[in-house]
Design a protein around this nucleic acid. Structure first.
Lengths: 192, 192, 192, 192
DNA sequence: GATGAATGAGCCTTCATTCAT
DNA sequence: CATGAATGAAGGCTCATTCAT
């Protein structure tokens, strides 16, 4: 009654633990091996039977979605945390850099980020909405503060985020910094 | 310049024709269906037996590489054609836009473009060198003309090219234009 | 009537209730989905956990057997009820038709009926014996009354019952009636 | 040019041989182990790789259909061969017995026979049509000769065929003979 | 006793690659 | 050289059965 939290079933303690293990393993595996990695590999890394993976995520696609959801949720969280920063511009660019940096390590992140901008799969709309909301705040405030050009919206930022992440994936730190600098300058441009 | 058939075999006329058919088909198939498309599909579209595909490209990966090579070669060509433009800045941005636009249609292009920036696969170094040369000219001239910031090089441009292509793949035209505008502004920035 | 719990355990009230629920559900599920239906489905329909199903029926096969037993028991009951009919021939054919009609609805019935004629699985001999007894009475009386040919026994009737059920499963009513008519005429034949 | 025979591709000699081997193996495997037998088993018995089975029959279902088709075609052939017998009644019953006898050995036959009566799967309509034609002749002639009752058609006969086959599958010879006798008498019955 | 999460063998199917024709 | 049949590893997914809670 008090804290029901999620949606349907409370999920037994061990089941929840396994679900988390699987999700974690999946994140790692897909990051390292790409989304083409086998479900078996995920199971192995999670230290569970393959049946367990499929019990929690009845489809490979659903597993992918869940991973993406987690990532996006994490980003939304980060965005939210910066929502009332006294330095809106800094907060926005800080967030941008964080996301891109994340993608540098985990290969799959950017791939999935790309999907996140567009729609594609149902069910994750909630997470996407959250991210849209939190990032929207960041963006709007930065624009109002004059730190970010006013002629772009959520869609453009997501695309830039995904694109820069992708572009940056296998680059050395210095080059990555320069690329990011270019994009940042573009974002600042007073439309010119 | 002089010598045509780089390495060993002169390649009979019909063989060369088949090689070309396969390459064309592969380009189309991978563009439409992604790199996950089956080799069989390529053979079918090329109108040849699957054995023929494997005779010319002993591995699926080698076929992918060849396709990438073709794409890069085409881009190198385009870059070269703009090498002595009286408007260096225009030439550079024109080229950039052309590449990104191409990727908008052919999904696989950007995926492969990504690899092109870094090294990854051997054998394609020659094409990459050509592209580097031609694009280098475009970039340098644009920088000398003050149209592009001076603190970036080939690597950064390739990354931006790849990233923007990816970011832009599934966007509507208007959004795509805006994203491109941001990147362009970033590239123009007087270092800031 | 007298003795209820045949063999070992008295079985707690709720346990017995669960057993019944499972059996009922199984009957329905197998009838609708065929014997290939999953045990999980049975559990779901019964409103119990899958563990409960396996507690009562340690094997899917044993569950199948139990279902068959129930069906046969039901038939035995029907046969018994007609055992002292003043119209032995009518009783026999009436029973035959009843069984075949049942199978028309519940697909699995006939499949299992087939096994019932022969031996196959142990443990169900008691039910089979009951059916054999009750149907035997029906048959013998019908034969003595001259309504059914005398050169056949229980085995033949069971085979005919199973076969006709099967044959009749997916037929429209009219055709089914005609097929039944043929078999009935054959059963009546004075050996000829 | 001379004998094109089939439909699309002439099929290389070895390919045809393999197709036949697979079909034969499938027939045997499904007969012995039921239609639930694995495709792998079929491949093993045929002495080919599993890929070969799927090359010829892209789906397990298509393999099943092919097997059924072969069986039906064989029956159609037998029926046709008896089409102009001087003894129409004998021809009909002879054929009936032949089919039922076949089923006695090969378990799957009757299972598939059942489907054959109704429609179920497309593609096999041609074989079914042939059988319908040939058996139709047998039936009509037998009816005209007064050997078979006139109030039944192809559908009834197919159902009886399938049902009797099923009923008879695991019976000893004597019982089988008696069951068949009953059905035959029913078929002869002057409508009664 | 009941529950349902965990397990893993096994199934169908795809596809890169090889090789006889 | 071209062809396409053959191959078999690998992948996604299901399901009977076990066992900790």
């Amino acid at each position: 009654m008090a804290a029901e939290q999620a949606s349907a079933k409370p999920l037994r303690a061990d089941a929840a633990r396994n679900r988390a293990k699987v999700l974690d393993a999946a994140r790692g595996v897909f990051a390292e091996l790409g989304t083409g990695a086998s479900t078996e590999e995920v199971a192995k890394r999670a230290g569970v039977g393959i049946g367990t993976v499929f019990r929690h995520f009845p489809t490979k696609e659903s597993l992918l979605e869940a991973v993406l959801g987690e990532i996006l949720a994490g980003f939304a969280e980060e965005a939210r945390a910066r929502g009332d920063s006294p330095d809106p511009g800094g907060a926005f660019f800080d967030f941008f850099q964080l996301v891109v940096g994340e993608a540098a390590t985990k290969n799959a992140v950017s791939a999935e980020l790309a999907d996140a901008g567009v729609d594609v799969h149902a069910g994750r709309d909630d997470v996407r909405a959250e991210l849209r909301g939190a990032l929207g705040v960041l963006l709007t405030r930065a624009q109002e503060a004059g730190s970010v050009r006013g002629d772009i919206g959520f869609g453009e930022v997501m695309a830039l985020l995904a694109g820069t992440s992708r572009a940056t994936e296998n680059l050395d730190v210095a080059t990555r910094a320069r690329v990011l600098d270019v994009v940042f300058d573009g974002l600042r441009a007073s439309h010119a």
